[in-house]
Design a protein around this nucleic acid. Structure first.
Length: 464
RNA sequence: GCGGCCAUGGUGAAACGGUUAUCACAGCAGGUUGUGGUCCUGUCGUUACGGGUUCGAUUCCCGUUGGCCGCCCCA
């Protein structure tokens, strides 16, 4: 294969040139830590997840919104909370060429709130229901089901304070998992308003202060930094102490209590089972009232990476960002983890429809005619596979065989001259030569209903 | 960010101080002229990278990078 030689040489040269910065010399290109490629063979599962999210979003009349991946870094610093890990050590923050501090979004709720304010969505009929899907970035230590670039689908409702909104969001999440065939447990809690939470925190801290010397280091640190987190400690000692600790539900004001009770009632109404988890707290500062998580029901016991989604109410967020105070509620789903859960459960979504027809050509005259034929088939909605780079008929048939097509069309010099084409049934090996003008309709007839299947199922929308 | 385990071709494995690193699958090229699914042959790796110990290293040591697991945290 002569033509390959120069190409190879060229890539080598390029590599050498690229070396100036890094020390890595002869090793190939490498993925950045925590980043990954989602390969064609995983796309079936991913599309299944994305399509399910999309269709339920539409069914519940949410409007799609696409938000930028890069935002001013203070958007996240102000909303997520200065003390949180996300802001303190996980955010990709850098200075852009115009010397502005920007960040790769670690989540999208803040962006959605920003968009809501910036585009005056408060002038639209409330509540405004938005959904999105896209990559998020956190510089966390990678682990199974945890990547530095990961995908989230999110649902946000702005401008509604009714508990029915909380309940419906939970229902939507639950339905998405149901459709996908994944069992999840809904855990729910209320952390009330910032005011009653503050009162509770004071109480909680003073409770644990008595046992300060007994506490493990991790929990001492939490007590200092983010006392609420002590609630989901895994330490034996702390778990024991927790039993006597004040419970947040007892500290909720009347309004918060009512909101929570109503949310639960609505959930009962639509028969969404939930587990009341008084220790459930979330990592972002902006939450108020209802918080919830979707946990993989699979492997209880060890809690690692089983949170497939979570969310809650964030009534203060829009106001915090300078908008008119607007109640809001939402949740996000971890697409990577869901895709992984499907793989673990061996749930294989309907595969991408494979082409049923293969086109084999011999010589340039046939290639030329083939190019035109290919268009005819495309217009007729019949996808045709080919191996245009190959010359020998034998190797083209090998490919056709591997693809498992029903029919192979063979076009050589002779057929081009005669205006015919050979159609070969791959199963029986039977061949017939037919008028090339009739080929599309004959193929359609031979494929019966199958040909049309192809177009429908998966719609490749960029990034969604 | 902390701790532990690991790293052999595209994939899955073998060799575990000693001659040209073995096997399977996949890929590519062939087994004469225009016909697939079997078969045969060839080809595909500076054993992740860098350094050290040694007469000699895939095998031992150190560093880097990456993966996995636990913690932290989160989706």
């Amino acid at each position: 294969m002569n033509p390959k030689q120069p190409a190879l040489k060229k890539t080598k040269e390029v590599e050498v040139v690229d070396e100036e910065e890094g020390k890595k010399s002869k090793s190939g290109p490498e993925l950045l830590r925590g980043f990954r490629d989602i390969l064609p063979e995983e796309q079936g599962r991913w599309s299944f997840v994305r399509d399910t999210v999309r269709s339920l979003a539409q069914a519940y009349t949410f409007d799609r919104i696409d938000l930028p991946i890069l935002e001013r870094s203070d958007l996240f610093q102000r909303t997520i909370g200065k003390g949180t890990d996300i802001i303190e050590k996980e955010m990709y923050v850098f200075t852009d060429p115009s010397n502005r501090s920007v960040a790769l979004r670690p989540e999208a709720t803040a962006s959605a709130a920003r968009a809501y304010i910036e585009h005056g969505m408060l002038d639209r009929p409330q509540p405004v229901k938005l959904w999105y899907l896209g990559p998020m970035f956190r510089h966390d230590r990678p682990q199974a089901g945890r990547f530095r670039q990961f995908y989230q689908a999110g649902f946000e409702v702005f401008g509604g304070e009714e508990p029915i909104i909380d309940a419906q969001l939970i229902l939507i999440g639950k339905k998405i998992f149901e459709t996908l065939g994944i069992d999840v447990q809904v855990q729910i809690n209320s952390i009330g308003t910032p005011e009653c939470r503050q009162a509770y925190l004071t109480e909680l801290v003073s409770y644990f202060r008595q046992f300060r010397n007994k506490l493990p280091d991790d929990d001492k640190r939490r007590l200092q930094k983010n006392p609420l987190r002590i609630l989901d400690s895994k330490e034996e000692v702390t778990l024991g102490l927790l039993e006597g600790a004040p419970q947040i539900l007892d500290w909720l004001d009347e309004k918060s209590k009512e909101h929570f009770m109503k949310t639960l009632e609505f959930l009962d109404e639509v028969e969404v089972p939930y587990v009341l988890n008084p220790y459930l707290v979330r990592g972002l500062d902006y939450y108020t009232h209802t918080v919830f998580e979707f946990l993989s029901a699979q492997d209880e016991g060890d809690k690692a990476q089983t949170a497939l989604g979570g969310g809650g109410r964030y009534d203060g967020l829009v106001g915090l960002l300078g908008g008119r105070p607007t109640p809001a509620c939402g949740f996000a789903l971890g697409i990577d983890r869901i895709a992984r859960a499907l793989a673990d459960k061996n749930i294989n979504p309907p595969p991408f429809p494979q082409p049923q027809v293969f086109f084999a050509q011999l010589g340039d005259a046939a290639r030329r005619v083939g190019l035109r034929l290919y268009e005819e088939f495309r217009v007729a909605g019949v996808p045709v596979a080919e191996a245009a780079g190959k010359n020998a008929l034998k190797s083209q048939l090998e490919v056709a065989n591997k693809l498992g097509v029903k029919l192979t069309l063979i076009l050589g010099q002779k057929e081009v001259l005669d205006g015919t084409i050979i159609i070969r049934d791959m199963e029986s090996g039977a061949q017939e030569t037919i008028d090339s003008k009739k080929i599309v309709s004959i193929v359609q007839r031979k494929l019966g209903g199958d040909a049309g299947v192809v177009a429908a199922t998966h719609s490749p929308v960029a990034d969604s």
